[in-house]
Design a protein around this nucleic acid. Structure first.
Lengths: 409, 409
DNA sequence: ATCTACTTTTTTAAAATTTAACGAAGTGTT
DNA sequence: AACACTTCGTTAAATTTTAAAAAAGTAGAT
């Protein structure tokens, strides 16, 4: 791969994240001069990867020509896994779903076949349309657990005999593969396309079956020395003697998570607490949480009470984050954020009690407006972020033929 | 200031931090080609700022010429403040003390005159030798409290009527001034010259009258959105109802700090606990801690017990840091670190109990080998780190004439 | 309404920088 | 001691950047 090809990938990356840019903007973003940038842009247009979008609004002078990616020249396969389900979607350069997302049951716990099954699902998903599959630049996968991004290993799930998850899937599918922790990808989605855009120091809380954390430091995702940074769920915050899945007691997770909500609802209703919601034996934890969120939005006291208590405890954890990181934004995101504004008051209340005012004063708590697709958008973004760095790779037999993002020589 | 002058400052900065470098090393560090680097080096030698050091050892080929700064061409004024005392020292480019450090009594609390008094001391210190003073590149000051580095304001102490601490002192002394939090500067000293050299992700704990924290992220000091990051002392870690100076309860500081050690010693001895140490009415907290450290090193059970208990609590706080930041190194530094290895066992014990093993396994706890000068070395490093970015400034009348680091046009 | 002064974008030509090739200086193995 | 291989430093060719100028607009004043 020549130096110019690398720069072209940089341009494509920038256009992907910004949707549209002028030549001046691009020149600044890739750190090259305008003559070079324009030369490369013209080559990319010749190759059919980039298109001119027409003239943009003037900012007090000559109007700039805007450039954008050809949305359907290249695709990304985005995968979002949780402990039970795996969702797969094919996305284009405009973050649209080319095919609708499909959900498969794929339990990760105590499952030696998980990685193989994931490979099966991916192959089957792509077999539908080899022509489209051939345009895939890479596969991005978000998953729970301790993920070492560099090594391509997950120490909690999807264990591999030898080598990395990436290597296994790349061999089967012939396309570059990138994996990361689910909370990190949600943070990445928020950083690039959501409410954390242009944030330099921010914390994205993933309210889910645990309380995940994706950290934004200096405008980039922060992963720590081994990629394990942001293990928010298991900080020793309470003296409650409640046993956590991790083997310790007092973890934030034992007192705050969607699982705890579900448990408390069952407990409360069985004790005869008054509420507008009803749950049946067949309701999953997912169903119960859905009901609680809706009821809370309607004003159901019982549900609001439960969410408030959980929110306060999350807020206590956040106060630690604020003391240590002094972030400009705390963004509540993930499955639980769909409950909406109910979280804000109890979290702020906890900050008032546990934060030095000067610190909490400089941090704003926000609520994500992304839905459950955040993780998949993050997975796609991971591919586009990472793909710039990968070296030329030997050609694989499957899929039939892959269209390179830039001409490889 | 021309572009070349900026590059020359970069070269000087690199030489300051590395002591000596070959032209190839320098070329890589400043990101410029060898021909340019060598041209600039020759200019710097002409100007008398840099000297050739002779040929270095071969690494399998031709031996490289090594370059170093002329140690006494330029000086830095380093200042380390705590709540009671302020130490000042003039340092050269080899981190040697040109004049011995001097200590002044300068209480910060409830002292409206503090900033003015600091200015008086600095002026008096420099009046001794105007010729040397004229060589000062900048003044670096470490101080406790909430320091906003960018604005040059300390929200806890040294309040200014209008404008910044920097502006006030620069006006009086005619030299660029840089301020930062004391714990940040200790971390900077460890990062550039101490045991955190080349560390990408590390936490430097400043065991002092509170428990400070300087964070190293991506190989640079991390300050957060407003410069307040690392407020370790006041995270809500205990449910102890002990009132903290910050107004809240349960802060780490209420259970662990040198002040707590001093209190516990007094309490224990008055209760008749057996120990080899004796304290008198005139002993300051500083004196008591000194005695405790020495006694613990001798094997005094009482003192070891106190330090162990405090160490365990600091360790509990560190376990939170490890969960969130996944650092490669935790470095115990600051005044309290002089107690030595006594800290290690209780800290490790706390990690065993409060950390997920995979996380603590990847982090090593180290003990600083820097003495109390760390903060001043950090203050000097701050000046050298920052001075590259400052624009040309109008000439000041005092001191007589300042030799610029590179020729300003 | 139109002229003038000031912006910003894009192109072109001059200046500066980088790259690459080569000679110099050393190491280590046969 | 010769040969292969390494790194360092210099010179000349190739590329990139910078700066100047042209092109295309905006906005305010007459």
């Amino acid at each position: 791969m020549t130096k110019n090809d690398l720069l072209k990938r940089q341009i494509c990356k920038q256009l992907y994240f910004a949707q549209q840019l002028s030549s001046t903007d691009l020149s600044e973003k890739i750190g090259k001069s305008l003559p070079i940038t324009i030369k490369l842009l013209n080559e990319l247009i010749q190759e059919g990867q980039v298109k001119e979008l027409g003239y943009g609004a003037s900012t007090g002078g000559r109007r700039p020509m805007l450039y954008a990616l050809e949305a359907d020249r290249s695709y990304i396969l985005a995968v979002a896994m949780d402990q039970l389900y795996t969702r797969i979607a094919l996305m284009n350069m405009s973050n649209d779903f080319v095919w609708p997302a499909e959900q498969y049951t794929l339990p990760l716990q105590h499952n030696d076949q998980a990685l193989q099954q994931l490979g099966d699902h991916l192959e089957k998903y792509l077999e539908k349309d080899p022509a489209a599959a051939a345009r895939i630049l890479g596969i991005g996968i978000g998953m729970p657990g301790f993920v070492d991004v560099k090594k391509g290993v997950n120490y909690s799930f999807l264990k591999t005999e030898t080598g990395s998850i990436n290597a296994y899937l790349e061999k089967r599918l012939g396309v570059p593969v990138f994996i990361d922790n689910d909370s990190s990808l949600i943070a990445l989605a928020e950083l690039r396309f959501g409410m954390a855009q242009n944030v330099k120091d921010g914390m994205v809380i993933n309210i889910s079956w645990g309380i995940g954390l994706g950290m934004i430091v200096n405008g980039e995702l922060f992963r720590g020395h081994n990629g394990f940074a942001g293990e928010f769920s298991h900080i020793p915050l309470f003296s409650n003697n409640k046993m956590c899945a991790c083997g310790k007691t007092g973890c934030l997770e034992t007192e705050a998570s969607l699982l705890v909500i579900s448990d408390q609802v069952k407990q409360g209703l069985s004790e005869g607490k008054v509420s507008s919601i009803k749950i049946t034996q067949t309701d999953t934890n997912e169903d119960i949480c859905e009901k609680v969120f809706k009821a809370a939005a309607r004003g159901d006291r019982f549900c609001i009470g439960i969410l408030s208590e959980i929110g306060y405890k999350i807020g206590k954890g956040i106060s630690i984050l604020i003391h240590l990181m002094n972030p400009e934004v705390i963004l509540l995101s993930g499955r639980g954020a769909t409950a909406g504004k109910v979280w804000l008051a109890p979290v702020e209340q906890a900050l008032n009690e546990h934060c030095i005012p000067r610190l909490s004063f400089n941090t704003t708590i926000k609520l994500s407006n992304m839905d459950l697709d955040a993780e998949m958008i993050g997975a796609a973004a991971l591919v586009m972020e990472s793909i710039v760095y990968i070296p030329t790779r030997e050609k694989k037999t499957w899929p039939a033929e892959r269209l390179p993002l830039v001409s490889e020589k």
